[in-house]
Every structure is written in structure tokens, then in C-alpha cells.
């Protein structure tokens, strides 16, 4: 059963590549515009030996990873504080409700003014944009904690702090993890947007712009392909970690997706 699925998936990918190659070979599309599939794949392979691309990829990943770490460090405690203190949460909520729908890339021009260093700029933008899903998920998760579980612990004489640590945090953890996974996706969008809009010396976004100005569509699409594959891998890795860590948590749907 599973075997047949994998086989069909492989067949689907192969079919898509072949179809794209055939369309290219018929000459319907000028391959100076849109290169053939074989050329794109060759371009993607070349990129693996291209020191410049590898350096750019490292720079983007560094900004992404650093930004995400900092986001978690800021957003999880913030979410916990807001979730544990309902009066504060009620007061802050209108601000959150207004700030959250602001399209996050709009803050890039402001960030350009404030940060001269490109890495700092990207990390700052990521922290701003990727914090929301984590904060919101954490607040909701804490609110959802089974009151009975909390009261049980309280009846044994535990204080509010240990209730937070021993009951609220573990039962909220799966939702926080979902928030972090969503944030990881937001973060990569922001890093690349910041690269495109703010310029700089290094980054996949910069590489793609240079390939565009050199009219190397094959390298552009090759780099895009790698970015997509990286996205698939990092997402599956995060999902796998979630599954491992929270096996006890029956597959309840996350608060935000």
C-alpha cells in the first residue's frame, strides 16, 4: 500500500519532468526565456559546486536559524507570560490584533533605517514577523489547559509557579511546537524578502537577483528548486521532531496552521 504510494509519487515527479522537457523540446517556448527542464536540473547540479551559491545559502540559513532561535527565545516567554496573566493579555490583545495583520514585509524599509548590518536587519525582521504565530499559539494553548489537571496539582499544595511548570507547560508544548513550525515558514519568507528589498552582499535572494540580471534563468530556477527542497526537508524534520516529542499528544489539530 505504502509502497504503491511512493511509486506513484516518483512516477508523478518523473512524469512532470518529462512533460516539461518535451514541451521545451517542441520549441513552443523560447528557451532563452524559460530554459528546458534538463537545463534547469543541470543548473541545480552546478550550484552544488558553486562556492558563491553555497556561501549565499549559508548566509540565508544563518539569518534564518539565528532569527528563529531569537524568536523562540522572545516569543515563548512572552506567550507564556500573557497566557498565565489573563488581565495583561486582555489589555494587550487589541494591540496584538492590530499589529498582527500588518503585512510583515512592510517593516523592511523601517528596518533598513535602523540596522546598518544586513544580518541584524534580517534577524530583526524575522523576530518581528515570526513571533506572532508562536505568541498566539502559546496563549491559546495555556488557555486550553485542562482545569482539572491544574486543580489536581493545586489540591496537593503546589504553588502557581509549579503548576505552570508541571502541568500548563507540558500540555501547551505541542501547540507551541506547531507555532514554531509555522514561524519557521514565515521566517524564511521574511529573510528572502529582506534580501530582495534591502540588498546586501550575501544571501540566496541576492544570488537570484544576480542570476536574473545575468539572464541565467537556469540558475535562478535551480536555486529555487534547492530552496523548495530545503523547505520540504526542514518542515518534515520539524514534524518528525514534534511526533517524537509529543507521542502522548493525540493528533489534535494545531491552533494555527
Amino acid at each position: 500500500m505504502e509502497h504503491a504510494r511512493v511509486l506513484r509519487g516518483v512516477a508523478g515527479v518523473a512524469g512532470f519532468l518529462a512533460a516539461a522537457e518535451i514541451v521545451g523540446a517542441t520549441g513552443l517556448i523560447d528557451d532563452r526565456f524559460l530554459p528546458r527542464m534538463s537545463a534547469i536540473l543541470r543548473g541545480a547540479a552546478e550550484l552544488l559546486a558553486d562556492q558563491e551559491f553555497l556561501a549565499d545559502a549559508r548566509a540565508t540559513l544563518a539569518a534564518w536559524g539565528l532569527g528563529l532561535l531569537l524568536t523562540v527565545a522572545v516569543a515563548v516567554p512572552a506567550g507564556l507570560a500573557l497566557g498565565a496573566l489573563p488581565p495583561v493579555e486582555r489589555a494587550v490583545r487589541p494591540l496584538i490584533e492590530f499589529l498582527r495583520p500588518i503585512p510583515s514585509v512592510a517593516v523592511v524599509p523601517l528596518a533598513i533605517l535602523l540596522f546598518s548590518d544586513n544580518l541584524h536587519l534580517r534577524v530583526a525582521v524575522v523576530v518581528y514577523a515570526a513571533s506572532w504565530p508562536i505568541v498566539i499559539n502559546t496563549i491559546y494553548a495555556l488557555r486550553d489547559v485542562d482545569p482539572l489537571a491544574k486543580e489536581t496539582l493545586r489540591s496537593f499544595g503546589f504553588g502557581p509557579m509549579s503548576v505552570l511548570l508541571r502541568v500548563a507547560l507540558p500540555s501547551a508544548a505541542p501547540f507551541i511546537a506547531t507555532g514554531i513550525r509555522v514561524a519557521a515558514g514565515t521566517a524564511i519568507i521574511l529573510v528572502i524578502s529582506a534580501e530582495l528589498l534591502a540588498g546586501g552582499a550575501e544571501g540566496v535572494g541576492i544570488y537570484i537577483m544576480e542570476a536574473a540580471s545575468g539572464n541565467r534563468m537556469d540558475l535562478m530556477l535551480g536555486a529555487t528548486l534547492w530552496a523548495g527542497l530545503f523547505g520540504v526537508l526542514s518542515n518534515s524534520a520539524l514534524v518528525a521532531v514534534e511526533r517524537r516529542l509529543f507521542r502522548w499528544h493525540d493528533a489534535r489539530a494545531g491552533v494555527a496552521r
Binding site: V105, V204, I208, M209, A212, N215, M217, L221, T224, A227
Partner: peptide
């Protein structure tokens, strides 16, 4: 869906 959408901006502009 894993391709970061902003990467497509330069691509479609060139295309």
C-alpha cells in the same frame, strides 16, 4: 508549497 514565494518575484519579473 515549500518554495519561499518571494523567490519567485525576480523570476516572474524576468520572465
Amino acid at each position: 508549497r515549500a518554495v519561499p514565494p518571494p523567490l519567485l518575484v525576480p523570476f516572474f519579473l524576468a520572465l
